[in-house]
């Protein structure tokens, strides 16, 4: 375990990964990590537009995990009633740089029953031009809340609009209840 950690770090570095987190995520953590990523990119003299877009992708993807991850630590009834403890969602966030582009790669567990709908939605976005994405974004923004979606499902469209190439995704079936959802966006 002790000497494996260096190999793990080396492997991350070789893949251009400069930030990697796996575990319970919170809004506070998002704010601090986001600030550090902006700082790091400024030091690397990335343009303010690139920093803005990467930060935006990081926020949308991380909030997606916070809102929708099927892997959650739930408080007991006592904890939620007496100490007002909320649940915590888990997921993985990776930020890296490869072939002249920054990217955000994230993953979280989802319930199998939403996989087909989510896949359809993402394929639709993959095949849209920037102009079509803009129209779709505006259309969705005008419509009210979309079932269990907190932001009219705008997050994915926003990601697709910002990314330099179509968003990539994958679903890996884990068991009868869950799949692991992976999403990658590049800027």
């Amino acid at each position: 375990m002790l000497n494996n950690l260096y190999h793990f770090k080396k492997e991350l570095n070789e893949r251009g990964i400069f930030f990697c987190f796996s575990g319970p995520l919170s809004q506070d953590l998002l704010v601090e990590i986001g600030g550090t990523l902006k700082h790091k990119m400024k030091l690397e003299e990335a343009s303010s537009s690139t920093i803005f877009k990467l930060f935006s992708m990081f926020v949308e993807q991380t909030q997606n995990i916070i809102h929708y991850s099927a892997e959650k630590c739930q408080p007991s009834r006592e904890q939620s009633e007496e100490a007002e403890l909320l649940s915590l969602s888990s997921g993985i966030i990776v930020v890296g740089y490869e072939s002249d582009h920054y990217y955000v790669l994230c993953g979280n567990m989802v319930e199998n029953e939403i996989v087909d709908t989510l896949r359809e939605k993402l394929i639709l976005l993959q095949n849209m031009s920037k102009e079509e994405l803009k129209r779709y974004y505006k259309e969705q923004r005008r419509q009210g809340k979309n079932g269990n979606s907190q932001g009219a499902g705008l997050g994915f469209i926003e990601l697709a609009r910002k990314a330099v190439k179509p968003i990539e995704f994958d679903f890996q079936n884990i068991n009868e209840n869950n799949s692991f959802f992976t999403l990658k966006t590049e800027i």
Partner: peptide
């Protein structure tokens, strides 16, 4: 300086 997609909906 920055707002996320759900803020964009609220602004509209």
């Amino acid at each position: 300086n920055y707002f996320n997609s759900s803020s964009s909906k609220l602004l509209l």
